[in-house]
Simulated assay, not measured.
Amino acid sequence: MVQLSSVLVMVVIVLIVDPSTAKQFNVLIFSPIGSRSVYHLTIHLSEILADAGHLVTHVSTFGPSSKHQNVTEIPTGASVEHLEDINIFHYRNSAAGFDWISDVTEKVGHKMWMDERIRRLWERRHDFDAFIILSSMNEIVGPFLMDYGGAVVTLCTSAAAPELLFLARQGHWLPLSVTPNGKFLYDEHSSFFERLFSPWRTWFLYKEYRQKSIFVAQKILDQYIPKMPSVEKLFERNHLSLINGHFTLDGPLPLLPNQIEIGSITSKSPKPLPKDLEEFAESSGDAGIILFSLGSIVRSRDIPHEYKVVFLKAFRKLSQKVIWKYEEDDLDLPPNVIARKWLPQQDILGKIPCFLGHPIKMNFCINIT
């Protein structure tokens, strides 16, 4: 799968630039609004392009981490807390979740367009050969698409149907009655009533998103950019879509040739684990270990207490050892469970038979070794 990812990346490079791979291209990658895991995805993509000899500028709200000489990171000027200070379990109601999107768009959007570094970058946007932009929640970068003549690539961070609605910007509407819907855990084997419900519910989500994200971004940008055109119209200029998913997990999708699944693109060969984790893993013997992680934006500490009790009761009965990404020290853990606030997930994934996570997170963790 790692080799397949490398091939896909090379295809992407050829599609978004010139067929001559000897030329060095200037690529601008936007990830101002997204979780830390999304940041890791986009910075990894930046370094892959940089390894191929291209110059990459990466815009994000998270602090710089890449040491690659061909990667330049530019912060938005907004606080990381805007993206991480969230209890996702409070937003299980979809309407409340869109309120959070609206709030974070305002906080990051204003800071971003008041920042001189971003303004200078915008003024020289024509210096770049290609843009790579997150497909949702990032309409705030719309001004960069104004009279831009280079290649525009969108990156879908998951293969859930609501996310894939943004492929419609390329004139490609997926058949929602048969497209797997990660939001509701429907798959290609859905019942008649699930197929009937899925298009209505998915369209409702998109309409809510349009109201709480796209319109909010438009209102903010109108304050900073003279004669700002429609953000929706600007985002219709899209030459290629990268989808961080794979049909083996998400189900088959009827994609166009310029819509490429890149699930597993972040996979790497595992490094040795820290000594305590290595000893814990070895002590499990033939039973093996289980990794339980909800990622960076969905924190285990925020799980309602009654469900934490259920997890612990279930883990206690297992013959396997369990490594749990848990951000506090308030649990009475059974002997076969250890908890850490942060884990070298990529390295652990190369050593385990079972991984527990939320559905969308699985797209970041496809790892075949």
Rank of each mutant, 00 (worst) to 15 (best):
R169F: 00
G245M: 05
V337G: 01
E208R: 07
L312V: 05
I88A: 10
P180K: 10
L273I: 07
G285L: 02
V80G: 08
I352Y: 06
D329P: 03
Y206W: 13
T61C: 04
K313T: 15
D330F: 12
V310E: 12
R169A: 01
I101S: 07
I368D: 12
D18E: 09
H40A: 15
L134Q: 13
W122S: 14
F131H: 10
R124D: 10
M137K: 08
K107Y: 00
S283N: 02
D103Y: 13
D302E: 11
S177I: 07
K227Q: 14
E163V: 08
P334D: 12
I140M: 13
V2L: 07
R201W: 12
H172N: 06
N258R: 08
R201I: 12
H90F: 08
Y224K: 00
G357M: 05
F292H: 05
V59Q: 04
L277Q: 04
I86E: 11
E232L: 08
S267P: 01
P270A: 03
I360A: 06
A130W: 11
D99N: 14
S284G: 07
S230C: 04
A52N: 14
L255I: 04
N336R: 09
L331F: 02
I140G: 06
D302H: 07
F98C: 06
C156Q: 09
I368T: 11
E123S: 08
A161P: 01
F364E: 15
H246I: 09
G63N: 14
H172P: 02
D187H: 10
V178I: 15
S35C: 05
L41A: 15
F204A: 12
K313I: 09
F131L: 06
D347W: 03
D99Y: 07
A159E: 03
T21L: 15
V322H: 05
A159M: 02
S135G: 09
F197E: 08
M1I: 11
E139C: 07
E123Y: 03
G357N: 04
Y224Q: 01
N181K: 10
I368V: 03
D115M: 11
G263K: 01
P229S: 09
D85G: 12
H40I: 08
G171F: 02
Q259D: 07
I368G: 10
V11E: 13
N26R: 15
I133A: 02
S5N: 06
L167G: 01
S213E: 02
A96P: 00
Q320S: 12
S65M: 13
D347Q: 12
Q345V: 14
D332G: 03
G285R: 05
D222F: 01
G350K: 13
L312P: 11
R169V: 01
A281P: 02
P359Q: 05
I303Q: 04
K317L: 15
H82S: 06
K341R: 02
L249A: 10
A52W: 03
K268A: 15
C156T: 04
M112C: 00
P334K: 10
K207W: 02
A95K: 15
V153G: 09
P335N: 09
K317F: 03
W342I: 11
R169N: 04
A339G: 03
K351H: 03
